[in-house]
């Protein structure tokens, strides 16, 4: 269909109309971001007087950004400390589970796999109360690992951050397994079978054949999973709560919010500080992100 269509309309009015609509959509999708960026560079006096999508000539300032970075640096560190290991481990567990449930053929694996997949759709609310009790009563990491919090100088608040990391690993496994399984299905059974006939153990096949083959899929999974974990608010609110170990999404809520006025320039700067890691990931690895969401 492709060639005929091009020949049909060439550079006709239709074509121009099409591009106009597409550009209009670009404006639609980018306008809130553009307005946010522009506003984040305005002084508090200038932002009310200028159009929200135009830069202010007189009122340009970096004060909002430096204030936002100041206020968020602690929780930015916490978010990295939590999101990086949570991402890596959920991807690793997902890859291993997908291998055990796909390339090795055994009865009942589809049943187990269905449980994994259904886990993707569980609304967090359905587990919040038990999770809160689990981490405070059953597995009180702040008590169990007291020497760690003391020796590292982090303080016991960070027990909540560790609990959050583990929770995110568990909740990331289902989607990671799904992503890897769809990929591992395309790995030829003959190759795995041949390796097994040659006497390679299941573990060896994973390390020598499957793992090297999955590098592109690891990129997709890590990117998708990092974005999900970084962006989450609800688990952090309930498991970490207020305190030194708050993650960045928690801190962003309260910034620039006083009783009487909302400091929008500061809020916008803070929003972009929060979004920066995921935006960078998206700009550099957009293709992988798209693969992750459509799997």
């Amino acid at each position: 269909m492709t060639d005929t269509k091009l020949a049909d309309d060439g550079l006709s009015l239709n074509r121009i109309g099409l591009y106009a609509v597409l550009l209009g959509l670009v404006v639609f999708y980018l306008l809130p971001l553009e307005a946010g960026i522009v506003t984040s560079f305005k002084s508090i006096r200038a932002y009310g007087q200028t159009a929200p999508f135009l830069p202010a000539v007189d009122g340009f300032t970096l004060a909002q950004w430096s204030s936002a970075v100041d206020q968020l640096s602690g929780s930015l560190f916490n978010s990295v400390l939590m999101a990086v290991p949570a991402t890596v481990f959920s991807a690793l567990f997902g890859s291993m589970a997908a291998y055990g449930l796909t390339n090795i053929d055994w009865r009942g694996q589809v049943g187990i796999y269905v449980l994994f997949v259904a886990g993707i759709f569980v609304p967090y609310q359905a587990v919040l109360v038990p999770l809160k009790r689990f981490w405070s009563q059953w597995v009180p990491l702040h008590i169990w690992l007291e020497p760690v919090w003391y020796l590292t100088g982090l303080g016991t608040d960070y027990a909540g951050l560790l609990a959050l990391t583990i929770t995110h690993i568990a909740y990331g496994i289902p989607i990671c397994t799904l992503l890897f399984r769809s990929y591992y299905k395309s790995v030829s059974d003959e190759m795995v079978e041949a390796a097994r006939l040659d006497g390679a153990s299941i573990r060896r096949i994973y390390r020598r054949i499957i793992l090297p083959l999955s590098i592109p899929m690891f990129a997709v999974t890590l990117i998708y999973q990092f974005t999900q974990i970084w962006n989450d608010l609800l688990f952090a609110l309930i498991i970490v709560g207020p305190g030194d170990a708050s993650v960045i999404t928690q801190s962003l809520i309260g910034i620039g919010q006083s009783e009487s006025v909302t400091n929008f320039p500061l809020q916008m700067a803070a929003a972009f500080v929060t979004a920066l890691p995921t935006l960078l990931v998206y700009i550099f690895f957009g293709e992988q992100f798209a693969k992750g969401v459509t799997a």
């Binding site: 306008l31 962006n231 929060t274």
Partner: peptide, 26 residues
Amino acid sequence: YLLPMSLSFVVTAKMWLWMYSSNGGF
């Protein structure tokens, strides 16, 4: 077109708070 999806709800909420603001929002 897919870019907004990579952002946190918290970030997009702040952006729309500003977009909808009756105090100079777009």
